[in-house]
Design a protein around this nucleic acid. Structure first.
Lengths: 225, 225
DNA sequence: GCTATGATCTGAACATGTTCAGTTCTGCCC
DNA sequence: GGGCAGAACTGAACATGTTCAGATCATAGC
């Protein structure tokens, strides 16, 4: 009677996976607020206490959702990245696939944001618990940069990915508040930013302008926790 | 027996003021979470229902706190603004007095942030209900700009205040997450930003650079809801 | 096989923001 | 001054995330 049980999964593992599965599905279908602990427990056929045994808080369940979303982001971006070696194009791909992956959640975005933003709990983007999820995005930007032909000074090249991740977070923040149809304003903002970047990046080679640009990058680096 | 009743205040007005007063005090002393509706009601000598009659939700009470803070910000900044005509100095004054006014709340900042950030409810910074509070800051930046000697192109001069307010919001966001002693990192970030601005603003007069700078300002303007 | 120990699970209890049906009070009109 | 409409107020009830003392289960060691 272990037909689909994949190997060394204990009963506990299966319970956990069950709870996780129902929670993820409900987050997607009903959003954050309507996915109550009691509902998850009921659908998973366990008690309220059991969900809290496997996931210390509702926030921890959202953290799992973040991970799923980031994995999906990577999976969506990587094949498209093969298609071009242009730096700005490649950055655009990462940003765009990121926004597109968020689209199904937009109607619930406010709920998730207020849960996500609190610096105390595990799902704020700067918490250590979020590091794995953010790490995926950081890697994406790193490889977008590494796989592109460009001629950035090495110090810029090294500092850029972190700045790009910060841009990603801020873009996502804007997107949450963006009520335009299809969140087109977010996409327009992105294209504008990319266009600006295309014009500015070459200037890092101009002696006169290098210093202030470096200064700007340092400012952004200062923000990274 | 109306010894200290100031004129045309109805009983209802006084009840409201009472509730407001106790809530403000408790927010300052205990933070957002520990200031429960029941506690406010008890201290104000009314029932739970009455607080919700005068203030539809706990968020609305926080909105009142915002207003108080912004008024205090203006009161703190205006006299200092008299002391200099240098644009960057004046902007620094507005930003610095803003951060300083927030200081007493830093230990509770996370609680307030997660309450504040939700786009659905009245205390998110972009909601119409927040407009008065943000308007005060906008005016501050406007007058900081108006009272300074500078030579910005008029289109820049017109678009700048909104960008400065956005900077204020982002700086406050950073400040919430800033755990350095006295939030010195936030202040350092500010000084860095001001220094950068001092170097960049004159460049708006250089024909070659004006276009990309204008582009940058437009990008920021796009963000304003 | 038997049992002790720790992992797993249960559901009642708690604190909290919010709602609402009902009660009391206020001020105005005749 | 008597009554009435609406404002002001009450507190029990609800939904929800979280906690916790205890029940149950799985399994390692004999």
């Amino acid at each position: 009677m272990f037909s689909s049980a994949p190997g060394p999964l204990t009963k506990s593992d299966r319970t956990r996976a069950h709870i996780r599965g129902f929670a993820m599905r409900s987050f997607r279908e009903r959003g954050y607020d309507a996915t109550t602990i009691r509902l998850i427990a009921q659908e998973a056929g366990v008690s309220v206490g059991t969900t809290h045994y496997h996931f210390p808080s509702k926030h921890h369940l959202v953290q799992e959702l973040y991970l799923d979303v980031q994995y999906a982001h990577r999976a969506a971006a990587e094949p498209v990245l093969e298609t071009t070696g242009d730096l700005i194009e490649r950055l655009g791909i990462v940003y765009r696939t990121g926004l597109e992956g968020l689209a199904p959640f937009h109607r619930f975005a406010p709920e998730f944001l207020s849960a996500a933003v609190s610096p105390r709990s595990p799902i704020n983007p700067l918490s250590t618990e979020s590091a794995p999820a953010l790490g995926i995005v950081l890697d994406l930007f790193r490889s977008a940069l590494a796989g592109a032909k460009h001629s950035l000074p090495t110090d810029f090249e090294r500092a850029l990915p972190n700045a790009l991740v910060l841009g990603h977070l801020l873009l996502a923040l804007f997107w949450v508040y963006d009520t335009s149809p299809g969140q087109e304003r977010s996409f327009r903002l992105l294209e504008r930013g990319l266009r600006l970047l295309r014009g500015v990046l070459p200037l890092t080679r101009v002696p006169m302008l290098r210093a202030p640009l470096r200064e700007l990058l340092d400012l952004v680096a200062e923000v990274q926790a």
